[in-house]
Design a binder for these strands. Structure first.
Lengths: 265, 265
DNA sequence: CGTCAAGAGGTGTCTATACAAGTTACCGTC
DNA sequence: GACGGTAACTTGTATAGACACCTCTTGACG
């Protein structure tokens, strides 16, 4: 079994044997676009040229190109050689989920002061969204999130007990809860964010240092496991002057999202 | 030429000859998932069964399945037969862009009263976003949008003159501006939406029938052509009680977006 | 000098085959 | 009855070839 290698053609990547060919090709092509080796707006080598360069058949090459095309890094069509296009990448899951990762990604220093972390019985609304019986034990975490030491967002999270109990072993003032949960192999996989606007309630106003009734950007978030089991129900209220959300979409169906610091006018 | 048909194998779809096979298969598979013919959570027929049913090779079948997998309607992996999963589909470009299409898609009757449509010189901000010289001629459209005859959103759009002049041939009270622009072959291709919250100004408050200072959900939109030329700069202000935006994302990078009517609590 | 036709080269689509790698079910053994 | 191994089936990956359709260039012709 397992004749150790073929070790002939294929000239560039082929570091180990592990990742499948079309993935290696995709990564290599993406590198070439991002590095400018394939300049933006200029046609990239044809499929047959790429086949020749890497010593493969058309299948893997087309699979890799299709991946990039789906991400919007390549355009082109029948008869026309594909053209490279640098695009603002969608914020990856972690950055979009984690305030800490987001703040760092825009070059700001995240901070937080924990208002409370408590084990209590689920409120009717949270219980319904989390799929729990009313009154089931949950862990609630309320934190004021800071951007360069300025209040930016008030976060109210409700975790199912199995996940929330991890928080008692962890000081929520020191860093990212999400990174800690992922380190503990919690299966955070899917999140649904619902965005609207609310008026600041007295408690919000006091912590965010605004007047009662001032508009806040609210993001309610339901985070679930890969099997669809709800793990967290959150209500984040942002100062509109500190953060905005963006959605970009095209007629072809590509969609990218991002969260950005509000640019001063 | 054009030997009229082959009319042998392939039993179900095959209406005409126009759309390519893998697209027909993809549409058929999607229909089966949405109709419940392939129940959610249950494994769907194997690739070889599908090949036999439609009399094709594995290529098109796999291409169709890959499409659905990318949209999140199918899960599965090596060795495991794929499993159907109904998901809230991402709103297509048109529905996300057009208030009229959106309203119809949620079963409400859209309406509008045009506050003004005017040709004037671009304001500094709009000129900068549209890439025009300050003072260049533009067309401004202000409409109050209704959902079942109730005010829901105040729309302020600024169109570059070349696009905006179409509006003078068209009564914005009668229907969708976007559908009209698309009919006129305007190349609306890409849109960037920036979401935040603002307090209602006196003019907003009067038209939307709320108090001055009440929170509104603001969506600023820059629509561009497929070559990146800005065509429209808009500022939509929603009553938070009437609409919310949702973003769903997963750790694998899939993202879908939607705009929904706020559910009553 | 403009216009149309032919050709070369490109991608899109489809078929057929082969093997690798994972999952599941079954069956014999202990 | 529990355990382990095998066999069948599934999807993932890759190759090779064929043809349709589109684009762009080139060259001949008017």
């Amino acid at each position: 079994m397992r004749s150790p290698a073929v070790e002939c053609h294929s000239q560039l990547v082929k570091t180990s044997e592990d990742p499948p060919l079309h993935q290696r090709l995709g990564a290599e092509f993406q590198r070439r676009i991002e590095s400018g080796e394939w300049p933006e707006g200029r046609p990239v080598p044809s499929e047959s040229q790429l086949c020749a360069e890497f010593g493969t058949s058309r299948g893997p090459v087309r699979q890799a190109l299709a991946m990039l095309r789906h991400e919007g890094s390549l355009t082109g069509g029948r008869g026309k050689p594909p053209v490279a296009r640098r695009t603002a990448p969608s914020q990856p899951f972690g950055t979009f989920l984690s305030f800490t990762q987001w703040a760092r990604s825009i070059g700001r220093e995240p901070g937080q002061t924990t208002v409370e972390v408590a084990r209590r019985r689920a409120s009717p609304g949270a219980a319904a969204r989390l799929g729990l019986a009313e009154g089931a034990p949950v862990v609630e975490l309320v934190r004021l999130r800071l951007l360069d030491d300025v209040p930016a967002m008030l976060e109210r999270s409700t975790f199912v007990h199995e996940v929330g109990r991890i928080l008692f072993d962890f000081d929520p003032d020191t860093g990212s809860v999400y990174e800690e949960l992922l380190r503990r192999d919690v299966d955070l996989h899917h999140a649904r964010h619902t965005i609207d606007a609310v008026a600041a309630e007295p408690h919000d106003a006091e912590l965010l240092r605004v007047a009662v009734g001032d508009p806040l950007l609210r993001v309610r978030r339901l985070t679930t496991s890969s099997r669809g089991v709800p793990l967290e129900d959150a209500d984040d209220r942002y100062l509109p002057a500190m953060a905005t959300f963006t959605i970009e979409n095209t007629i072809e169906g590509r969609t990218v999202i991002g969260r950005y610091r509000t640019e001063e006018d």
